Deep mutational scan, measured.
Amino acid sequence: RKEMTAACTPRRRIINLTSVLSLQEEINEQGHEVLREMLHNHSFVGCVNPQWALAQHQTKLYLLNTTKLSEELFYQILIYDFANFGVLRLSEPAPLFDLAMLALDSPESGWTEEDGPKEGLAEYIVEFLKKKAEMLADYFSLEIDEEGNLIGLPLLIDNYVPPLEGLPIFILRLATEVNWDEEKECFESLSKECAMFYSIRKQYISEESTLSGQQSEVPGSIPNSWKWTVEHIVYKALRSHILPPKHFTEDGNILQLANLPDLYKVFERC
């Protein structure tokens, strides 16, 4: 597991931080080997919608929660590849102030007048994250320049770009939802926020969305749709870069829909 690298990086740093090793061990302890084997050997059937997909393993048909699986995938990559990410360069710098204002204007932020003026909160978020810029760049390849612009994001899987519609809320939550006081809790909560931002979430995906850094293989055609990215990038990574937690067998994120021999018997009677 320590050699797990989802995106190509030129050289690998050895990380011996106790906090990170502890988080890696927790993933191992909570892992479910049968689910790992199923995901490793599954045959992708198709997307139901951005949140759900169908896959077959041996004779069984499964309904998989793409949102939760991708979130767990990105969390584990962030923990196992800690401080070893490439950088996704933004085509132009994104001012943190503008991103924070967009987030505060969104109902998702939960902002009320009692929280104070949005401009003041946005300025605080910019200054707060600028103070964390060195650590964010060093460990997470999340790059913020001296003017308070976001200029780079971590490359977690080759050819995958997170849904940038979720970027404003991500920046807001970096400042408000991460435990910045304790090292282990900081790395864990920061990785979880980043994983949620990178995950496939239906509120940020339309039929026209593209999450891939590449064009489709047909010359002159439109960019790959999110469905292509889910199948050929995300579920491909799920084959080798995730140890599913045991609770996925109990919380409805992986559901067995049918045993195909039983279905064949039904059709034979028709």
Rank of each mutant, 00 (worst) to 15 (best):
A55Q: 02
D105I: 04
N28G: 09
E3C: 11
L39E: 14
C186S: 02
E37N: 11
Y62N: 06
S199G: 12
L174K: 00
D138R: 02
S212E: 09
R1C: 13
W228Y: 07
K227I: 10
Q24E: 12
A175V: 15
E37M: 12
A122H: 01
L121R: 01
W52T: 10
S91Q: 07
S141Q: 12
P168Q: 02
E146T: 03
H32Y: 09
L90D: 00
W111G: 13
T249P: 10
M135T: 02
V178W: 01
S206H: 06
E177D: 15
W228V: 09
N179S: 05
T9R: 08
E250M: 14
E37H: 11
Q203P: 09
F248N: 14
L142P: 01
F140V: 07
G166C: 09
K2G: 12
D98H: 08
L23W: 15
H241F: 08
L35M: 05
K184M: 09
N253W: 04
S22T: 10
I79E: 15
L69E: 00
I125K: 01
N179Y: 06
E185P: 13
Y235C: 11
P50Q: 09
Q24H: 13
E231A: 14
P50V: 11
L211T: 06
M196A: 04
W52I: 05
N84E: 09
P163E: 08
L121Y: 02
V48K: 13
M135V: 02
D105W: 14
A53V: 08
L64K: 01
E250G: 11
L211Q: 05
C270I: 15
V230P: 02
E165N: 04
D262V: 10
I205R: 06
R12I: 13
L102A: 08
K132A: 04
L54K: 02
I125D: 01
V266I: 14
A83I: 02
L69R: 00
R89G: 14
G148K: 02
A103V: 15
M4Y: 14
S225F: 12
T18Q: 05
V178P: 07
S206N: 09
Y235F: 08
G220S: 07
E268T: 08
D262F: 13
Q203S: 10
L156C: 09
I125T: 13
L104H: 00
A7Q: 13
E165A: 03
F128D: 01
S22D: 11
E268A: 09
M38D: 04
S106C: 05
T18D: 06
D115K: 01
V234D: 00
C194D: 00
T59C: 10
L238K: 02
P244D: 15
M135P: 04
G152V: 01
I157R: 05
G152W: 01
Y80S: 03
L167Q: 00
A83E: 11
P219F: 12
L142W: 02
Q51C: 06
L174C: 02
I200M: 05
K132D: 02
K130C: 14
E113H: 12
E165S: 05
M101Q: 03
E72I: 07
D115L: 15
L156I: 05
Y139G: 06
S43Q: 06
E119Y: 15
M4A: 09
L88C: 09
Q215C: 05
H40N: 09
E29Q: 11
L238N: 01
L104T: 01
C47F: 03
C8V: 11
Q24W: 14
R269F: 15
H247Q: 07
I169V: 09
I242Q: 15
P245I: 15
E26Y: 13
I171C: 05
K246T: 12
P163A: 06
S240I: 10
Y160V: 02
P117F: 15
N16Q: 06
G116V: 15
H247M: 11
E185A: 05
I14P: 06
L88A: 07
K68E: 11
V161F: 02
E37R: 13
D251A: 06
R36V: 12
P245D: 14
L35T: 04
H247F: 14
R12W: 14
C186M: 02
T229L: 10
G116H: 12
E72K: 15
K265A: 03
W228D: 09
S216P: 08
P223N: 06
F85K: 05
I14H: 07
L167G: 00
L150M: 12
T18W: 15
L39P: 14
E143N: 07
V20R: 07
K130Y: 15
P261W: 15
R239W: 14
H57Y: 09
E71G: 08
Q30L: 11
K131G: 12
R89A: 13
G31H: 11
P10W: 14
A103I: 02
A237F: 12
E185Q: 07
P107C: 07
I222T: 03
K246V: 12
K265P: 10
C194A: 07
V266A: 15
P162L: 00
N84I: 12
G220Q: 10
L96A: 01
A7M: 12
Q76T: 09
G220R: 08
R239N: 12
H40D: 12
F187H: 03
C47A: 06
N224Q: 04
L35P: 11
A6K: 10
Q58V: 11
I200Q: 08
T112L: 15
R13C: 14
L164N: 03
E33P: 14
Y80E: 06
L17Q: 07
A122L: 01
Y198T: 01
E183N: 03
T67A: 09
I14S: 05
M4V: 08
P244E: 15
L238V: 08
Y139T: 06
I157D: 03
M101L: 10
L61W: 02
N65G: 04
V161Y: 03
L155I: 05
I200Y: 09
E188R: 04
A55H: 11
I27K: 14
F82P: 10
F248A: 12
S240V: 09
R12T: 12
I14Q: 09
D105R: 03
E119M: 11
E113P: 05
C8D: 09
L136V: 12
K236V: 13
F197R: 00
P223D: 10
L99R: 00
V161W: 03
L64I: 08
L64M: 06
I157Y: 07
E92M: 06
Y124S: 02
Q30S: 08
T210F: 04
L164R: 04
S212K: 09
D145E: 05
D98L: 10
G152K: 04
P162F: 00
L238I: 06
A55K: 02
R201S: 13
L90N: 00
L174M: 10
K132C: 02
A103C: 14
T66C: 03
E108I: 03
A175N: 15
A122F: 00
D138Y: 04
S206M: 08
S216N: 06
Q24F: 13
E134Q: 03
W226Q: 03
D251C: 05
K68H: 08
I242V: 12
E217K: 06
F44S: 04
I151V: 06
Y160D: 00
S221V: 09
E188W: 10
L23F: 13
D105S: 11
L136E: 01
E193A: 10
D158E: 05
P95V: 04
T18F: 15
H32N: 11
Q215M: 09
F97Q: 02
G213M: 08
S22M: 14
F97T: 02
R1S: 14
